[in-house]
Design a protein around this nucleic acid. Sequence first.
DNA 1: AGGTATTCACATGAAACTATTCTCTGAGTTAGG
DNA 2: TAACTCAGAGAATAGTTTCATGTGAATACCTGT
Length: 400
Amino acid sequence: MQTSIQSIFSNYTKGKSIFVNKDALSTSYMPGSVTHRDEPMNNIANILAPCLRGERPSNIFAYGKTGTGKTLCVNYVVGELLKNTGQNGSIRTVAVNCKMRKIADTEYRLVAQLCKELGKQVPATGLPTSKIYEIFNDLLDGKKQNVILVLDEIDTLIKKAGDEILYNLTRINQELKQAKLTIIGITNNLSFAEGLDPRVKSSLSEEEVFFKPYDALELRDILQQRSQIAFARGALSEGVVEKCSALAAQEHGDARRALDLLRVAGEIAERNNETAITEKHVDLAQDKINLDKIMEAVRTQPKQSQAVLWSAIKIMEVKKEIATGEVYEQYKKVCKKRGLASLGQRRVSDLITELGMLGILNTKIISKGRYGRTKEIKPAVPAQLLDDIKTVLGKDFYFE
DNA sequence: AGGTATTCACATGAAACTATTCTCTGAGTTAGG
DNA sequence: TAACTCAGAGAATAGTTTCATGTGAATACCTGT
């Protein structure tokens, strides 16, 4: 036992690793140069340039699907901009990811977070929203400066908190005497701007920058660039990068996906003590990523939803196609055994539908004539995975 | 045989409740002047 | 005295339940031949 653990560790440290710098494959990695995004980058740079002369640049609205380099490009350009700041007045940037729960997903929290980023701690709760705007205002206007506000995943913020925030933020400029505020909104929701208040829309998207998906060739170049940093020489066999980029190109040209594939393929190869990554590992990586996605979804479901899923799996072990009523009966039993308050049938029906949306169950409404109308529930994942889900629910969540 | 009518077992919607989370207010506390 | 902290009230929100109504087709029940 001990020796085997020893050998795992010594393999890990001594054996020549496939990876040299795995960070280069992570999504937050900031490469020295950005590949195949010249057009939007130049665009952004041109728009932001005036602030080097102390003028206020236009607000920018950047949009494009996930993994098209929006955040990367914006951060890169802003970073370069900061480097070029001479004595011509100061430039500050504040970046917030609005998707972060509990940090910036309401109006109050967002502004509070902004204040914090600007170096002023404010109470997490207790102040009127108007007060916090005041504080924010004072912070900005404290000296002559150009502040660039980067709001990543801005759509989630608006969806949760309404577009009033943007209206307030864009209006702040009129009240500022010394400082100037520029907003860069980033979203991957292409139809996001449609639902906005026209005033907000026009002021936020003074300039729009669209990020189109990468095609397979571009993805290949990106992967090649990153893999040179990430992997040891000779660790990549022929065709691996091509395969990753082709797979990711099918998924609407998502670079994040491509990098994940490559990284996971590498991890799999490394774990198997192999010296090179082959296309076989990419296939395995593809499976693993899908599996992880579903597992994560299962894990993060609320208890009740898990109980419903558990009940459904339990019945599916002996029966292929099952109905809502059967699941509900089983579910009630499970709740009783676990001392969990059980929900009404109406709700359980909705939960089953939700599990269907997640791609764990396959639900279809059918009518069985005289014997009623119900959802026909089948597993939407391979039996093996279903087993894994059952194990996780059974062990980690004590349904067993 | 052919045509209605029933009936089952939920689906689907809307309104009503509830519990939780936010926001706001004012009282109490602190610290600096 | 201004700034801050904090508990508690009221508002907003998410999660559920209750009530009401809708659905599709296998079966039951007629009807006239």
